[in-house]
Write a protein that binds this DNA or RNA. Structure first.
Length: 116
DNA sequence: GCTCTGACGTCTA
DNA sequence: ATAGACGCCAGAG
């Protein structure tokens, strides 16, 4: 075949699947961030892509989307609302929130030690 | 093809 | 610690 694989970012739909795969690997009781998930998925500057991937996520798909928060350790607000739902899902598996609605990433962030 | 948008993150003041 | 500017990059129009 004449086509050679050349170095560079993977096709978007493939990148999206990688993102989903990373999110699926976040352990119960832990959380990760948009930026970190992007990195793990091979997208060093792909935080916004991770957000977009979640926005376009099939609602029927079984994926722990709620374990993704922003770099501040807080739940990101978005148009459709639903932050309270995400918080409840996290609390239901033991995640604790500070007074400022923040999660201690040094303790509950995944991968462990990533936020030290 | 071009421009604007945004569930983000990092740097500066 | 807080606020604002900038950079990034795929989607949407």
């Amino acid at each position: 075949m004449t086509q050679r694989s050349k170095p560079g970012p993977p096709p978007i739909n493939l990148a999206r699947e990688r993102i989903y795969s990373v999110i699926d690997s976040i352990p119960k009781g832990k959380v990760s961030t948009y930026g970190t998930v992007g990195k793990e998925a091979g997208l060093p500057r792909g935080a916004r892509q991770v957000a977009a991937a979640l926005r376009h996520l099939d609602p029927g798909r079984d994926l722990p989307w709620f374990r993704v928060v922003n770099s501040c350790g807080k739940i990101s607000e978005r148009p459709g609302g639903g932050e309270s739902v995400q918080r409840q899902l996290l609390e239901s598996e033991g995640i604790e929130f500070s007074k400022a609605h923040r999660i201690d990433l040094r303790r509950l962030g995944w991968p462990s030690g990533y936020f030290s």
